[in-house]
């Protein structure tokens, strides 16, 4: 319900959206050209990315500035919160597509290829001798023999790291509500640091996969689902850690109050989302 006593707030015009669109346009054309083997593609892509980064810095700078000047009403704050939660929901659905692919290939496609269900002749005539197992790179063993990534070792350490970071951010949250600025700074700093370590370890894990396990993006459906799921997750961890870093800088600069710290909460929600996705990954990609 709207707040009767609060005056509505409508922000004035801004050039950032159109800059963002131009950036996206250049970036998408650039990456298309790049993939098609053109020589200007990578450069255009870089320009597009630069424009978008500029847009993000400028736009968020604007918003932070307005927020610090205290011109946002509680209603605006609530709009931001709702907007962020729905954005996270859309991200959940993006991952759902890839998890869906994982479930489908494991439980439907591979058994079909073996000759299961109504695909008796698929196995008999096209892929004789193929047995559906997981991990698998398919009946033609696309990408050659490989070793799967086990749940112990680095992935386990990464799980512990993310779970710990989820604790530290919660501590930071309680601290910010009670305005213990130093505690916030320490625990928020720890959180993004853990995020950075996670990303680093994942890079190590990938190198291990490519060099020692012969496990690559091209290793059939196992390689596809493994790298796409963990890869997109890693990208989101990077983004989340960046968000936390920015919020951390703002905390150091004395931004936020006990009741007004939307950016903090948005990043924290995002961090929890990344965390939960990881648990799903750990269970379904590494474990079973």
């Amino acid at each position: 319900m709207a707040h009767t006593n609060d005056k509505y707030y409508v922000p004035h015009g801004s050039h950032w959206p159109i800059v963002g669109s131009i950036g996206l346009f250049i970036m998408m054309i650039g990456v298309s050209g790049w993939l098609n083997g053109g020589s200007v593609g990578p450069w255009m892509f870089a320009v597009g990315v630069a424009v978008i980064i500029g847009m993000i810095v400028g736009w968020f700078g604007n918003v932070i500035d307005e927020s610090e000047r205290g011109i946002y009403s509680t209603q605006v704050d609530k709009s931001f919160r709702m907007g962020m939660s729905w954005f996270i929901f859309s991200e959940v659905m993006f991952f759902a597509a890839f998890f869906g692919a994982l479930f489908y290939t494991r439980n439907m496609a591979l058994p079909f290829l073996e000759g299961g269900s109504n695909n008796f002749f698929t196995g008999l005539l096209l892929w004789p001798g193929f047995e559906a197992m997981w991990p698998s790179n398919g009946p033609a063993e696309v990408g050659g023999t490989f070793e799967p990534m086990g749940p112990l070792g680095l992935p386990l350490i990464n799980t512990v790291i993310l779970l710990t970071s989820s604790v530290t951010i919660t501590v930071a949250h309680h601290a910010i509500v009670n305005m213990h600025r130093n505690t916030v700074a320490i625990f928020l700093g720890l959180t993004w640091l853990l995020g950075a370590i996670f990303v680093y370890l994942q890079a190590v894990e990938y190198i291990h996969a490519y060099h020692e396990l012969d496990l690559t993006l091209e290793s059939g459906i196992y390689g596809s689902t493994f790298f796409m799921l963990t890869g997109f997750h890693g990208l989101h961890v990077t983004l989340g850690a960046l968000m936390l870093f920015v919020v951390w800088i703002r905390v150091l600069r004395g931004h936020f109050t006990g009741s007004n710290h939307f950016a903090f909460e948005a990043s924290a929600w995002y961090w929890h989302f990344v965390d939960v996705v990881w648990l799903g990954l750990y269970i379904f990609v590494y474990w079973f």
Partner: peptide, 21 residues
Amino acid sequence: FFGTSFFRAAGGGDPVMFQHI
């Protein structure tokens, strides 16, 4: 472009999976 096998039977994928998604 990157050699994944989501929709290729040879690598354990399925063209029909695209249709489902």
